[in-house]
Simulated assay, not measured.
Amino acid sequence: MFIPIQLDENSTEPLYAQIKSQLKTLILSGHIETGTLLPSIRELAGQLSCSVITIRRVYQDLEQEGLLRTKQGTGTFVAPVHQGERDQFRKRAVEEAIIAAIDAAKQMQIDEQELRDIFNEIVRLRMQND
């Protein structure tokens, strides 16, 4: 199974963190469904050109978080995720993006009303395109 993880080797964020974050997002967003068999540790390490140890750590951490289940001799599967967890994740992701936008606006000395105007215009344009 191909997992759409994009690594940025120029990022200051370690590969492990990039992989874990993106895999977690794919699971919590529902792009990788409950019960899906994930690639073996070796297979995913080969796909992403990283070490087996890195992928083992990602799988172990996500298993500790309750997002993955490993069955010896069978493989690693996506564990059931409750809808409430998915909703919280979605809300938190949007909140973090909005906070980053507000911080950028402050750095550019954009006042609250101008920021609201920019936000409303972008929402209007994006909603027309969908």
Results as ranks from 00 to 15, higher is better:
21 S>T: 15
83 Q>T: 13
71 K>N: 02
59 Y>Q: 04
92 R>T: 15
129 N>R: 12
87 D>F: 02
35 G>K: 13
80 P>V: 08
21 S>G: 10
61 D>N: 12
111 D>V: 06
32 I>G: 06
26 L>R: 07
93 A>D: 11
43 E>F: 12
48 L>G: 11
67 L>Y: 02
17 A>H: 10
13 E>H: 05
25 T>D: 14
82 H>I: 07
33 E>S: 14
58 V>E: 03
89 F>V: 10
122 I>T: 10
94 V>K: 09
5 I>R: 00
59 Y>I: 06
95 E>Y: 12
73 G>L: 08
109 Q>M: 09
94 V>D: 01
128 Q>C: 00
54 T>P: 02
27 I>G: 09
71 K>I: 13
28 L>N: 05
14 P>G: 08
79 A>K: 07
67 L>M: 04
100 A>F: 09
51 S>W: 04
48 L>E: 06
125 L>C: 03
24 K>C: 14
85 E>P: 06
10 N>L: 12
112 E>V: 10
65 E>V: 03
116 R>Y: 02
61 D>G: 02
30 G>L: 13
9 E>A: 09
111 D>C: 04
10 N>G: 08
19 I>F: 08
120 N>P: 00
64 Q>H: 00
37 L>H: 12
8 D>V: 05
29 S>M: 14
40 S>M: 11
57 R>D: 04
34 T>E: 13
46 G>D: 15
111 D>L: 04
50 C>M: 12
18 Q>W: 12
31 H>R: 15
15 L>Y: 06
56 R>S: 14
122 I>M: 09
21 S>N: 14
77 F>S: 03
83 Q>R: 03
